[in-house]
Amino acid sequence: MMKNKMKKSKSNSALFAAFPHTLPIMAGFLFLGMSYGIYMHSKGFSFLYPMLMSITVFAGSMEFAAVNLLLGAFDPLQAFLMTLMVNARHLFYGISLLDKYRGAGIKKLYLIFGLCDESFSINCSVTPPENVNKNKFMFFVTLLNQCYWVTGATLGGIFGNFIFFNTEGIEFVMTAMFVVIFLENWLKEKNHLSSLLGLFIPAFCLVLFGKNGYIIPAMLIIVATLILLKPYFTKREAKVKK
């Protein structure tokens, strides 16, 4: 029993350690989730739709895109291909997290299932306090984030256009969060080359290909450039070790 109790308190400490890191996402996801629910409501869907989609799909931009697919003619193949295009970035998150998620046991299934942009950024950049189980910490980050999104989407779907204050611009909370994560990593890292590539290549592709088609070329060029730079990075690493 004693052991059980200790186990429980460890779970709690992981939850408490994870919670503050998810606060900006709570603000962002409740708002964006509600916008999504309201949008679905305005297109005549029951709140069950945004709720079901945020539980099973849990990928914001695709859920927004899905509204039009659901309103159009039945075409599952098109829906499938579009999903792969919009969500291809997850492949790169997975590659970056192979090592971190190793050894997470059964929790790993949910960690991968709930891998969104925001959970990726936190789990990839935050080191939990020493007395906290790392796997539980990452599990709660992922779970809390999904709860916020599902809550927002469902509330939006139920209440429709019920808005209580001028929320224009609140979506910037997500941009601000990614800027801080980028900056925090910048202040910690010794070499900024990869960070700089991550800013300039997508910006360049955005100008070149436009906002609907830049993601995949940007990702591919980033990976190709990193592969070309492998000798440089490996050499640097060897130098630092010496």
Partner: peptide, 29 residues
């Protein structure tokens, strides 16, 4: 997880994250 990951993928796993953080900033904009 139970098989060794190719060196090249481990390399990408290490150097991709900073670039993805930048990518996400541009993505928001």
């Amino acid at each position: 997880a139970d098989k060794p990951t190719p060196k090249f993928i481990t390399y990408l796993g290490k150097y991709l994250p900073p670039a993805i953080f930048g990518f996400l900033v541009i993505y928001c904009l």
